[in-house]
Simulated assay, not measured.
Amino acid sequence: MDTAQLFKALADPTRLKIAYALVQEDELCVCDVANIINSSLATASHHLRLLRYMGLAKYRKEGKLVFYSLDDDHVKQLVQLAFDHSKELTTNGTSAR
């Protein structure tokens, strides 16, 4: 995956919200992700599958449940840095354009 594709995958607000939740929780089942993003299981699965295909997330099965996590620390750091930067801009009174 090239860098532009990575940012394109995270440019979607729903996928970014999922990625941030996975930074905070390390691993979540599809049903928890659906609750976090306030969507159906199908919608959550779709976004998680796309993150997996893009190499940003990985999954494991435990019985009928599927648990997702971010693929590596680089992805976690990138997402965390983006949210930290956004909070810093908000705190300093600078609005994102």
Rank of each mutant, 00 (worst) to 15 (best):
T3G: 01
A4D: 05
Q5M: 06
L10A: 00
D12F: 11
P13C: 11
R15L: 03
R15F: 02
K17G: 04
K17Q: 10
A19S: 15
L22G: 09
V23S: 11
Q24V: 08
E25P: 02
E27T: 08
L28D: 02
C29A: 01
V30K: 05
V30T: 10
C31D: 14
D32Q: 06
A34Q: 12
I36C: 08
I36H: 08
N38Q: 12
N38V: 04
S39W: 14
T43D: 06
T43L: 05
T43N: 08
S45A: 03
L48H: 00
L51N: 01
R52I: 00
M54N: 12
L56Y: 04
K58N: 06
Y59W: 09
R60C: 03
L65I: 08
V66G: 01
F67H: 00
S69P: 01
L70R: 13
L70C: 08
D72H: 15
D73S: 14
H74V: 11
H74S: 08
Q77N: 14
Q80L: 06
F83N: 07
H85W: 09
S86Y: 13
E88T: 15
E88F: 15
L89S: 05
L89G: 07
T90N: 11
T90R: 11
T91A: 15
T94V: 15
T94F: 15
T94Q: 14
S95N: 11
S95Y: 14
A96D: 05
R97T: 02
